[in-house]
Design a protein around this nucleic acid. Structure first.
Length: 489
RNA sequence: GGUCGGUUUACCGAGUGGCUAGGUGGUGGUCUGCAAAACCAUUUACGGCGGUUCGAAUCCGCCACCGACCUCCA
């Protein structure tokens, strides 16, 4: 199986030809959210980015197993030894059972992901459902000599690991330098080195989510779930691990250390990181309090929003930037994205009306090549979109008769657009397929006939009134040469 | 302070040496009772200062500014 798909590997800091270990199969593991509050715009970035990757790899013919975890345990407020569990804390605040809280926000997250038209992953494992796997992995790490127990908690021994392996290779860090620059940890720590991290934590008395283990009744450290679950579902060595760039250090670095210590070899072949969404130039994050939830973006209900932005507008907005660049939120940019998307969708809809000629004045093969080149170059969706817009000009000029297309080229052209716009970019026409669409269209026909009648009598007041009233309901009338048409705002 | 990345035309955003992405906005036009939409055309920038080169937004150096990571974060 061959392809020309190049992807940027954070581990080597270069674009590499994607060559899976066991073609045509390939594995993709992506760090999912910690579900303790509603998903925000920042969560949409990796979701769309890796959905794009999933779709493209599938399109290229790979059988992709896409695993995205849900973190529902073990994620502490901070890295000190007494940080509270994020889930436990929020559950207390909302007066819910921790698992009830998890269910609530997981449901919301999955609903938002569906609205963004991301395909569901093949497996969505939860950390709490894989305690046994995590305990087993800790045992392996201990027996390999890279972890130690203190008062019922188990910590990964980073300095020892670093003697034989390279802790920091992914994020470009050198342990000795880290140690020089570290902020001193308060003396209460059980850790031998501030860079050690918890594999298992003994539960404090009030802690609700805890499980029995050889060392204590407690819970697993945050980094461990990804190592345990990726190994379980994708194997000891698998192709792609993705996530936000903010997870590169320490989370992914710790994952590498754990897996390498437990398995004696490195697990991940390609590390892929999406960049962040910023707002006023700063990272959007729950901890910074500058986030806008997806629900509010879709409804427009937020002081920073000048209007509502549809899920596809958000998706298009994200796709308009390259996944490794930061992208800054602004009403202007989102509104521009919405308009661009509408134009693209209208043009695609117009493909159905194109008429074939005996020959072609455009080079469909070259257009096709351009589309693939953009995607093969590290998922360059901005470039792909620019080429799609270039092709829109052809659609229009064929319609006007200044360009011609043969019937076989037309068939290729149509399927090409369908494949890239819907199949790979994962966009969809949000105006299509609503309930009562038939009824609406029948009613609109009656209204349009009435208005047309008024216009033919030059009753402009009546005709303008109809148009203005419909506009209030979000329906735009267009008087064109071919007759009156309508569409939703 | 350390490490890494960025600074592109009004805004967003591609582009790792020559072929002047694209979207939005603006302007002009076609169409049109008016409007809107649609379409066509147009709008030529690369933080600063040096250097390499026949040629640099692209390579090198210095400086300025912004950000990410170094606690949790997608």
């Amino acid at each position: 199986m061959q392809n020309n798909f190049y992807i940027y590997n954070s581990l080597t800091r270069t674009r590499e030809l994607f060559e899976p270990l066991h073609p045509p199969f390939t594995g993709l593991y992506v760090c999912g959210p910690t579900v303790y509050s509603d998903a925000h715009l920042g969560h949409a970035r990796p979701a769309v980015t890796f959905d794009l990757l999933f779709r493209y790899l599938s399109h290229l013919g790979y059988k992709v197993r896409y695993v995205r975890n849900i973190t529902d345990v073990g994620h502490l407020e901070d890295d000190s030894d007494d940080g509270e569990d994020k889930i436990g804390k929020k559950a207390r605040l909302e007066h819910l059972e921790p698992m009830e809280l998890v269910q609530k926000y997981m449901n919301n997250f999955l609903k938002n992901m569906e609205q963004l038209n991301t395909l569901p992953p093949s497996i969505e494992p939860r950390a709490s459902g894989h305690i046994i796997e995590q305990v087993e992995m800790i045992k392996k790490i201990i027996s390999a000599g890279y972890a130690y127990e203190v008062n019922g908690s188990v910590y990964f021994d980073v300095p020892k690991y670093n003697e034989k392996f390279n802790y920091g290779k992914l994020s470009g860090r050198v342990l000795e330098e880290l140690q020089q620059n570290t902020r001193s940890l308060e003396g209460s720590s059980e850790k031998r080195s501030p860079w050690d991290f918890a594999l298992w934590k003994k539960a404090t008395p009030g802690h609700i989510m805890k499980w029995p283990a050889p060392w204590s009744t407690g819970f697993p450290g945050w980094h461990l779930e990804c190592s345990a679950m990726s190994t379980k579902y994708l194997g000891e060595v698998f192709d792609i691990h993705g996530g936000g760039i903010d997870l590169q250090f320490p989370h992914h670095e710790c994952e590498i250390a754990q897996s390498t210590a437990a398995l004696g070899k490195e697990s991940v072949r390609y590390w892929i990181h999406n960049n962040l969404i910023t707002i006023n130039g700063q990272k959007m994050a729950r901890s910074l309090g500058n986030f806008i939830t997806l629900d509010r973006l879709f409804s427009g209900d937020h002081p920073l929003l000048q209007q509502a932005y549809s899920p596809m507008t958000i998706r298009f907005f994200i796709l308009q930037a390259h996944y490794r660049s930061t992208v800054d939120f602004s009403n202007e940019a989102l509104s521009a994205a919405g308009k661009g998307l509408r134009r693209l969708m209208k043009a695609v809809a117009g493909l159905g009306n194109l008429k074939a000629s005996g020959d072609s004045t455009l080079d469909v093969a070259a257009i096709r090549k351009g589309f693939y080149e953009a995607m093969n170059d590290d998922l360059n969706t901005p470039l792909l979109l620019s080429r799609l817009f270039d092709s829109i000009k052809y659609i229009n000029s064929i319609n006007e008769g200044t360009d011609r297309i043969s019937s076989s080229d037309l068939e290729t052209f149509r399927s090409l657009f369908g494949t890239f716009v819907f199949g790979i970019l994962g966009l969809k026409d949000e105006t299509a397929g609503r309930d009562d669409e038939k009824l609406t269209s029948d009613l609109m026909k009656i209204i349009i006939d009435l208005r047309q009648d008024a216009r033919s009598k030059k009753e402009w007041e009546v005709s303008d009134h109809i148009r203005e009233e419909l506009k209030k309901s979000g329906i735009i009338l267009n008087d064109t040469k071919e007759g009156m048409t309508w569409n939703r705002e």
